[in-house]
Design a protein around this nucleic acid. Structure first.
Length: 474
DNA sequence: TCGTCTAGCACCTTTGAAGTGA
DNA sequence: ATCACTTCAAAGGTGCTAGACG
């Protein structure tokens, strides 16, 4: 059991830049070591089980936890160097989906991207040794569909697909302007569809079977849910219907729905028991496909070519490994397809894969003011307990919102409210790519960096709405 | 009419304070 | 007085459901 105090501590990255990323950063002294950072997903089998069916995550107005929740293991960090861990949610594509006849179908273009938020692990910053000594859980990360959310939850659109991205930033303190290199990890099996109510009964069953909080809904004969069902004949019918479906699940793979026929191969449907699958096979066979053949094919393009090991497939996909990929190759980014081409295409994969493959594993935050006093300096010779930095003037560095003050000195330090006067809520509502007016200026460097993700915007100012970890916001 | 969303519900786990005994 | 353990209630997470909404 990890002992992390996971109070909310979120960054609102809509307007987090005030200066250019130093172009020399990629060649910094840590570049080599950064390349050794390795992240593995915990409970990959559970994730895969969900993914094979088509993971759905409930989003609610007050915020809902993820299940399975994000939990990772880290290695390769410099034990005494401090790191910040972040998670954000990236749209999988430019579509809105609907659940129709036991399968997901594209239901049109995606809604305009809600305010981009990133969840910062409350232990951040902590030395590498801290991150590596035990798994890092993002249990308390919450998802919401409330665009006016003031709790700092990650805002998503229902019926849209997302996947979490994990970022490791080597930084001495939370608000350090000297954020240096960061590395990004994604796990294909963690992608999900945000929903306000479960669509796929198989997902419901999986959640009930594996989430301890849903134990009361398990069909073990001793619970009382049948009593509730009996109150209403219609409910009974519904339950019977679902029960049939679940029985088919348990009977397994006899007649899986067409939309995920191949993906069900590895799902044994046993209650309360994860399918025991050979890791190698699960990686090589690439059977995650609740989205139909064309989507599966697209998804595969996200993974590094020739990736036939778990590490390559499910973890460190963004680490530059070949000459064909280098950080800050802005001239290449400029060749990215436009959002319209990506979204409008019937084959969304090109857009998605390009966007994924173009995400830089190394990026920087502008060296805002190196002369600013720092409350804590961590170096190889200093590897003591963690103390959080005191208040500093971080104006123009990061806009942060911290809720649920549970960590004195950090969480209670309200640096920034995304809904404060300088950023009225109104600017977050409204259609179109320019719905979130810029609150600051971006430099050409950052603009270029953002462009490389595959979405073209002609207006430089528009990019100021994009998060530090830029992705598609249409 | 239909798809989506929401509030309220019962059931459950988790958590921490209070009580007890060695 | 301290520590370990148990008990208990509150808080909060979960899916279910009916009804609202566009």
């Amino acid at each position: 059991m990890h002992g992390y105090n996971e109070s909310y501590f979120l960054l609102d990255l809509k307007s987090n830049f005030s200066g250019p990323p130093p172009s020399s950063m990629a060649a910094g002294p840590d570049a080599y070591l950064q390349g050794n950072i390795r992240m593995t997903l915990e409970d990959p089998e559970l994730w895969k089980t969900f993914h094979e069916i088509g993971t759905e995550m409930i989003i609610t107005k007050p915020g809902r936890r993820m299940f399975p929740h994000c939990k990772v293991n880290l290695s390769g960090l410099i034990p005494c160097a401090k790191y910040i861990l972040l998670v954000d949610m990236v749209p999988e594509d430019g579509f809105r989906y609907k659940w129709n006849k036991e399968k997901w179908e594209v239901a049109g273009k995606a809604e305009p991207q809600p305010p981009c938020r990133t969840y910062l692990h409350p232990d951040s910053p902590a030395p590498g040794s801290h991150w590596m000594k035990q798994s890092v859980s993002f249990l308390k990360l919450k998802l919401t569909n409330n665009t006016l959310d003031q709790h700092g939850h990650i805002i998503l659109h229902s019926m849209h697909r997302y996947h979490p991205r994990f970022h490791i930033v080597q930084a001495d303190d939370l608000f350090s302007v000297r954020w240096s290199v960061f590395q990004t990890f994604t796990f294909p099996e963690t992608s999900f569809t945000a929903v306000t109510a479960y669509q796929n009964t198989k997902i419901t069953k999986l959640k009930i079977d594996h989430n301890p909080f849903a134990k009361g809904f398990r069909d073990e004969g001793t619970n009382k849910k049948s009593r509730r069902s009996n109150k209403n004949p219609a409910c009974l019918d519904k339950r019977t219907k679902m029960s049939d479906i679940l029985k088919r699940d348990s009977a397994e793979e006899d007649s899986p729905p067409d939309f995920c026929q191949s993906s069900f191969d590895g799902y044994d449907g046993e209650e309360g028991d994860l399918p025991k699958r050979k890791d190698d096979e699960s990686v090589k066979e690439e059977r995650y496909s609740p989205w139909g053949a064309e989507r599966e094919q697209n998804a595969r393009t996200d993974s590094p070519a020739g990736a036939d090991t778990r590490d390559m497939y499910s973890t460190e996909q963004l680490v530059p490994a070949s000459a064909s990929y280098q950080p800050y190759r802005f001239h290449e980014y400029g060749k990215s397809p436009s959002p319209s081409s990506s979204i409008g295409s019937s084959n969304s994969g090109s857009g998605r894969s390009s966007f994924e493959s173009r995400v830089p594993d190394i990026a920087t935050v502008p060296d805002h003011d190196s002369s600013k006093p720092r409350t804590q300096e961590i170096g190889p010779s200093h590897c003591g307990p963690q103390h959080l930095p005191g208040p500093q003037d971080y104006t123009g560095v990061l806009n942060m919102t911290m809720a649920q003050a549970g960590k004195p000195g950090v969480i209670g330090h309200h640096i920034y409210s995304p809904y404060g006067a300088e950023q009225p809520l109104g600017q977050w509502s409204g259609p179109g790519p320019a719905q979130y007016p810029p609150t600051h200026h971006l430099t050409a460097d950052y603009t270029t960096q953002a462009v490389h993700h595959g979405y073209h915007h002609g207006n430089v100012a528009e990019w100021s709405q994009y998060p530090l970890f830029s992705y598609s916001c249409w």
